[in-house]
Design a protein around this nucleic acid. Structure first.
Lengths: 230, 230
DNA sequence: CGCGGCATTGACTCATTTCAAAGGTGGTGG
DNA sequence: CCACCACCTTTGAAATGAGTCAATGCCGCG
């Protein structure tokens, strides 16, 4: 992790362009066309209704969310380092994409050349279908999480989902998002998220070193129903 | 709507093959490769873990669902007449697709020729990306529904979603699914679904001619929060 | 040093689950 | 053709889980 405040922006751009060239990703043939932008926490990466380029998240995390008529926010998808977005062009997009982490670095590829490339290079097209397929499967997993009954269940399966996505060994996680974001992701209140985590901790299912650092102790307990919370 | 019991199966197959040739759909160039099968209510169209062909739902409705460890079922997606499924090959698929309506008629296309066609014909590839994109957007809409707080809100937006999908004018719906399926789709109990519908009816938001026939009277009331239910 | 956002916990209200029962419907088989 | 049966639907009553309001402590940042 780099402290961006200490470094001029040009340095960052160069650093991330080099990083981009080293990380394997489906659009690497077009990296010379990519423009790299850094976003601070809370900044809009893509506004609602704005026609979007294809994007690759080099570093950081972002949320795809919509605001409901009653003012509540629903996070529809969580984008982590290495994820692509903007691939499926639902014009106009009815949701907003914002940076969650302190700094989210995005490589964006102009739409035109990629669409053309996709028509001529079956390998690229296949790779992008894989990305879309992965996004679809991620949506289905989120639906499974949201469909659970108790809040402890939801938080438990959220932790398992995060563990599968952000860690190598799958037992220690550093959450990229706040309790508020977890709440908006799971469709429950912030207090309920906090209580569910405390409950899981007390039961010995997880270990909370600090609010953002979670270790999974008993996987099974996270999958269980988790009643008698309070 | 046709009464199948009165007709021999061969007639049905011929009828649906003709219907298939007349309805515009992305795979029509390969209709001679398609095999048409009819499924009774509750029958598995695609088992969990089974490698799947690409399918087009000629008639009827189906559900994509998974069974949780606690025995509860979550419906991940609702497939209606004219929908495609099995496009994104997440092998092995972790969910089951079953017929909901009395008779669901499916045209299934072998995977190999289609994958080849997709690499050579950009128009087909584009069409299929559109289908996948639509599925993705449907998943996001379902997440928005599931993320709502009160059950009445969920049922209300479910009705609006159904109205947008199954009707032309958008005000009268014939539900293709039972209360149990709605409950498993929304992640609430059957009784709560029934109560929410009664509540919406009493408030004058909808009109229930019979359990499956809903007319939308006040759209706004369906989007509202809908507290004080009981 | 103070401020604002984040996190945790308590108390209270109430919506939803759960358990229970009754009426309705359509399909199947006699 | 009719009756039975399984499933669907609705409503009631009780228990409990989650939302809401409120207060406190924590941490990082300016």
């Amino acid at each position: 992790v780099i402290n961006f405040k200490r470094r001029p922006r040009t340095y960052c751009a160069a650093y991330y362009r080099e990083l981009l060239s080293k990380v394997p990703h489906p659009l690497e043939n077009l990296d010379n066309l990519a423009s790299i932008t850094s976003f601070r926490r809370g900044q809009e990466i893509r506004e609602r209704g704005q026609a979007a380029d294809w994007c690759f998240l080099i570093s950081g995390a972002a949320r795809r969310s919509t605001i409901r008529s009653d003012g509540r926010r629903q996070i529809v998808d969580l984008l982590l380092t290495g994820d692509c977005f903007g691939i499926t062009s639902s014009d106009p997009p009815e949701d907003t994409i914002e940076a969650i982490s302190q700094d989210a670095v995005v490589a964006s590829y102009p739409r035109q050349p990629i669409e053309e490339l996709m028509d001529t290079d079956p390998r690229i097209a296949h790779e992008l279908r894989k990305i879309t397929s992965e996004a679809l499967s991620r949506m289905r997993r989120q639906i499974l999480i949201l469909g659970r009954i108790t809040a402890t269940e939801k938080v438990g399966s959220f932790i398992l989902e995060m563990a599968a996505r952000v860690t190598k060994d799958g037992n220690a996680i550093i959450l990229p998002i706040s309790r508020y974001d977890i709440a908006d992701y799971l469709g429950v209140s912030v207090e309920t998220v906090s209580r569910a985590l405390s409950d899981l901790k007390q039961r010995g299912a997880i270990c909370l070193r600090d609010p953002r650092t979670i270790s999974i102790v008993h996987r099974r307990a996270l999958e269980e129903r988790g009643r008698n919370l309070g």
